[in-house]
Write a protein that binds this DNA or RNA. Sequence first.
DNA 1: CAGGGGCGGTGATCACGTCACAGACCCGGA
DNA 2: TCCGGGTCTGTGACGTGATCACCGCCCCTG
Lengths: 215, 215
Amino acid sequence: MGWAGTALPGLDAEDRARLDALPVQVLPDGAHLFSPGDRPQGFAMVLSGRIEVSLTGPNGREILLYAVEPGQSCIQTTLGLLGDDAYSGEAVCIGPVRVAVIPGALFHALMARSEAFRGFVFHALATRMNDMTQLLERVAFTRVEARLAGALLDLGGHEGIVEATHADLAARIGSAREVVSRRLEAMAKRGMVSTDRGRVALLDPAALRRLAVAL
Amino acid sequence: MGWAGTALPGLDAEDRARLDALPVQVLPDGAHLFSPGDRPQGFAMVLSGRIEVSLTGPNGREILLYAVEPGQSCIQTTLGLLGDDAYSGEAVCIGPVRVAVIPGALFHALMARSEAFRGFVFHALATRMNDMTQLLERVAFTRVEARLAGALLDLGGHEGIVEATHADLAARIGSAREVVSRRLEAMAKRGMVSTDRGRVALLDPAALRRLAVAL
DNA sequence: CAGGGGCGGTGATCACGTCACAGACCCGGA
DNA sequence: TCCGGGTCTGTGACGTGATCACCGCCCCTG
């Protein structure tokens, strides 16, 4: 049972078989799928695991651009195949990741003949573009506290436990470790969270949601 | 003599004729091509003039996302046609603008059959995505002074005269009017610029270029 | 059990954003 | 010509964020 049928509904049987026949790479946790300045070798589809794409500033600060979940493609590879720019972001694997890489030639052939494939690629591009716009809006206009609250809600699953260091959180929201420490302390004082080494417990998700949407 | 031949080289004669036959809208200076929440009606190509797309925060602050020059398409319309998101940006005309709007059906037909058209659309998307990434990087990681220097260099043509108010500059770089005033004053004290009501003269472009690339 | 490295807390200082307000300038109407 | 409102710019005060320089603390490993 191949992946193409589920990830790309609407593809005809022949193309589906072609994609299912592609080799699947398995990358270990922490592996770099690409780094700034690399040039793409193909169109990458994530089958399992998760890839986080982030930007690193000259001073060493980082910010998470977006994550690629199973069934999604990494649009940075797409863009590299289309425009001819090198990557500016950096992609690292979170947990072991299986990816199928569609070579450039096959990618262009599919774009030419398959309505379904085009739709998939475009939809992915549109979604990412929207994500980026929203991220830009948040970075440009909202305070650290709101971004932090949002990140905590994203990370804390149903149990409301976030396993991340202050530095991790800072990288995620594009701020500095000390700032995150101080904001968390303030939130703890207000009873919204409690902190522990390498972990944050969300005590009052509703209050955090209010914070996250605030100016 | 139609526009399609120059804007979209490689298109076959029949498609070119179809595009040249489209009505051309003329929009006055300051007109809004779209506003946040609008839904796109077609794929817009700018023939002359210039459209600036910017984001407005809840507090009223603005930041310029990118400009659409003649021969380019507005990718926000593209994205709207593909994904099904409404606009989040706001597009205003700078000077009178002539645009050709390609209806959704024709757009999709061209995407299906024309290699050249696909290439154009993809290239535009890739370029914009890269622009956005760079902007995000600048907003997240560089100081106001560097962004301001960059904006001044962008705006000051060969004569090095920028016709813009402090508020205009602030909107362009996503900062506040008072901050721009103070930074300009500091630059003036260092002999890089001189300011006047509604105008900034660039006295030392080289120094500004150094500032613009600095951390 | 002694280091050492990763993690978190703190104070000082500077850059930025925000608010409130005061001049200065511009332009049109009386 | 003078007046008055709108726009543009300058200024002080204050809170938030970023950065630097530290210093503890916990945990792991040798």
